[in-house]
Amino acid sequence: MTLACRIHGARDLRLEPDEVAPLAPHEVELRLGAAGICGSDLHYFLHGRVGAFVIREPLIPGHEASGVVLRTGSAVRSVVPGMKVAINPSHPCGGCDYCRAGRDNLCRNMRFLGSASVYPHVQGMFRERFVMGERQLTPVPEDEVSLGEIACAEPLSIGLHGVNRAGPLMGKTVLVTGGGTIGCMTVLAARLAGAARVIVADIADRPLDMARMVGADEAVRGDQAAPAELADLADVSIEAAGSPAALATCLAATRRGGRIVQVGTLPAEGIAFPANNIMARELDYVGAFRAGVEFDWAVSYLRSRKVDVRPLMSAQLPLSRAVEAFELAADRSRSTKVQLVVEA
């Protein structure tokens, strides 16, 4: 038996015994390397839901993780025991119309780790040991790249996908609302895409400091800026805060003919939406949900250190201190990315 972290409802997180599933031929048993606490994990912990996804049975959260191979199934060829791996939490079916069209992040039959989007829920990786399919693993042979960095592949892929949905950014001004992990990953991705100027808006100082650290040209307190300071500011705005106020900032700041990309999850009860503003200013409003091939790009950027996520890694706590880790992750004045690890 091993240890797992399960959320039974709002603020009801328990450490409980867990059984490791038997290995099928194309499956791999892993020891947890590091697992980041994401905004959606926090929503499950604090509220028992993320948007429309409501916990209906005990859920093991965790979808951004790295692992170390312990055992391999008889048909596994790409990894061997002792190898470090990045773990893609998306498990699309490969056969539906969206998968065949190359948009597997929209798969009709998606099995996404640590999610209550389907029932029974898909259990995640906040546990000491677990079994994954071989195709969800990417080896990372570089000794100097840590398990904590590898676990950042998934949030980096979200930033990359949001920027991909924004269209060409070469020479453009990009506004990112939200200076948390996803906002900062979006800054890194916008830089990779050639943005000439990247501005981050947030309502707290620490996230803005982190955004500057990873390459933002300017950092603005959105709650203190005069409306005229933000008007007509950006060619592209990327909403990464999951806040109606942040979305309003995007709508005000995006120039006529520009594009807004919604990455953050807004409240389930909905918001008032200024559709006539979209129409009259010919704004493109698009969504960005999870990621597809961008996960592979993220692993490649981390392996080569073309992207350095280490400044965002605030703390690593053992799985046995999961409640403390969640409370720390929820405090934006003290942390950006908090990870769970297995005690030595």
Results as ranks from 00 to 15, higher is better:
Ala280Pro: 00
Thr2Met: 13
Pro168Lys: 08
Ala211Phe: 00
Gly258Lys: 10
Val131Thr: 09
Val131Ser: 01
Ile87Met: 04
Glu343Ala: 10
Arg31Asn: 14
Ser304Val: 14
Cys250Trp: 07
Leu175Cys: 05
Leu266His: 03
Val236Asn: 02
His26Met: 12
Tyr301Lys: 11
Arg259Asp: 01
Ser40Asn: 08
Ser237Gly: 06
Ala21Glu: 15
Ile260Ala: 08
Pro58Trp: 00
Glu149Asn: 06
Leu317Met: 07
Arg111Ala: 14
Ala196Trp: 02
Ser90Tyr: 00
Ala196Ser: 13
Thr72Leu: 03
Ser304Phe: 08
Leu147Arg: 07
Glu57His: 03
Pro311Arg: 04
Cys107Lys: 07
Met313Trp: 02
Glu134Arg: 03
Asp308Ser: 08
Ile55Thr: 08
Gly114Gln: 00
Asn88Gly: 03
Leu340Phe: 07
Tyr98Gly: 00
Glu27Gly: 10
Glu324Phe: 06
Ala231Arg: 13
Asn276Cys: 14
Glu218Ile: 01
Phe112Gly: 09
Thr181Asn: 15
His47Ser: 11
Val140Ala: 02
Pro89Trp: 00
Ala329Tyr: 05
Ala241Arg: 03
Ser117Thr: 14
His26Phe: 10
Asp205Ala: 10
Ser320Phe: 07
Tyr44Trp: 03
Arg6Tyr: 14
Pro17His: 03
Ser117Lys: 12
Asn88Lys: 01
Val187Pro: 14
Thr177Ala: 08
Asp235Thr: 07
Ala322Lys: 03
Thr173Lys: 07
Glu128Tyr: 08
Glu134Ile: 06
Ala211Leu: 08
Leu42Thr: 08
Arg11His: 13
Ile150Tyr: 05
Ala329Ser: 12
Gly183Leu: 05
Leu42Cys: 01
Ala322Phe: 08
Gln136His: 12
Thr254Asn: 10
Ala52His: 12
Glu218Arg: 00
Met132Arg: 11
Gly9Asp: 09
Ala268Gly: 00
Ala268Trp: 04
Arg135Cys: 05
Ala75Gln: 15
Ile271Gln: 14
Ala116Glu: 08
Ala65Met: 06
Ala52Gly: 06
Ala24Tyr: 09
Ala34Phe: 06
Ala288Ile: 05
Glu218Phe: 01
Val20Glu: 07
Gly67Asn: 06
Arg303Phe: 06
Cys5Leu: 15
Arg321Asn: 13
Ser66Thr: 11
Gln339Asp: 03
Val28Cys: 12
Arg197His: 00
Arg6Ala: 13
Ile260Glu: 06
Ala291Gly: 00
Glu16His: 03
Glu57Gly: 07
Gly36Asn: 02
Val20Gly: 11
Cys93Val: 01
